[in-house]
Design a protein around this nucleic acid. Structure first.
Lengths: 183, 183
DNA sequence: TATTGTTATACTCTATAACTATA
DNA sequence: TATAGTTATAGAGTATAACAATA
């Protein structure tokens, strides 16, 4: 079972840009305080996801690994770790638990005896289907209250933004944006 | 100076809803994988913010406290901690550093001898102005590439969503959404 | 020499509880 | 009894470096 990590993104933070704070009188409502709203929405999603995936071995990251292992059939640990932007040492702990729960299996790569290919077990596929239902429900629940038009606009905007950010600087080391910000 | 916290939200995580992974062939592009995109955008902002606010005593949270203390003039530590959703023990460490840097001051509340009111020093105000410039630049930089229409739609959608989530369950303990998600 | 996967260690942040002093 | 603020302790999570096996 190991002692390892599991769930990242613990909790609070992120910053209001305007000189005031949400629900405060002199808050600048128009400028769309990206950082603050983003933080609220992100944390709401993260918290709901943690709750919904609580029984999955590595929590949300275990789920991610499951998803990625399913998508990249027989990818190596390292490949999948890179895809997800998680450290390979963390991947080891994660897989220890996922494998112990019979959700994935590490199979020696015949072509490269250093590597191990990941396979999702039948139980893994079954759980994955269940988890995706949960996540879809969760997402729908989060978006309740947004008119259809706004909802699609929001999702489209987020997708485009995410795509651009990924293009600039894939997953892990993302350090470019800082330079653009200079006194 | 203390040993204290500082920067939360360390790094990776958050989950793709679809059975696949970004930039992977069989990814469902239309459903707008909220969790995944949200994670990318959030982390990009968080990382840029950490870099931009690196010299501020508590990092992004120090900035937040500064902002809140400025908005809620002479609010008590506890009040501001509640506003920001940070623990009062963390607030202590944060303020130790902010006060040591002469950015805020703890002034005994004459009406309640247990409480201390926070005041932003002149140096604090000056720094705050500078930081807000940086944060605005950062936000603009993040949104580059989004057509004007999409940008306002995205910000509006985020704001509405955040407002609703805040109404459901203010800042800290946000545990309702989980119930809506049931097999 | 570089890479895959593993393990061990140290460090950072957070959560909890205990304590003082007021109310 | 409850609250404001502080302090100390233990825990979860991360990052780093070192290692063995292979390329």
């Amino acid at each position: 079972m190991t002692a390892h990590p599991g769930k990242p993104v613990t909790g609070a933070y992120h910053g209001p840009v305007s000189a005031c704070v949400p629900s405060h009188p002199n808050r600048r409502a128009v400028d769309g305080d990206l950082g603050w709203d983003l933080g609220i929405v992100f944390r709401a999603h993260a918290k709901a996801a943690r709750a919904a995936l609580g029984d999955v071995p590595g929590g949300p990251r275990g789920f991610q690994v499951l998803v990625a292992a399913c998508a990249e059939q027989h990818g190596s640990q390292a490949a999948i770790a890179r895809t997800l932007g998680i450290d390979r040492t963390v991947m080891t702990y994660l897989l220890d638990d996922l494998e112990a729960a019979d959700l994935v299996r590490r199979i020696p790569d015949p072509n490269d005896r250093r590597a191990r290919r990941l396979t999702v077990t039948p139980a893994g596929h079954q759980l994955l289907a269940e988890l995706e239902r949960r996540m879809a429900a969760l997402e729908a629940e989060l978006l309740v209250g947004l008119p259809d038009g706004e909802r699609t606009a929001l999702l489209a905007g987020l997708r485009r933004m995410a795509a651009r950010l990924e293009a600039i600087d894939p997953v892990h080391d993302r350090c470019d944006l800082a330079e653009a910000v200079d006194p």
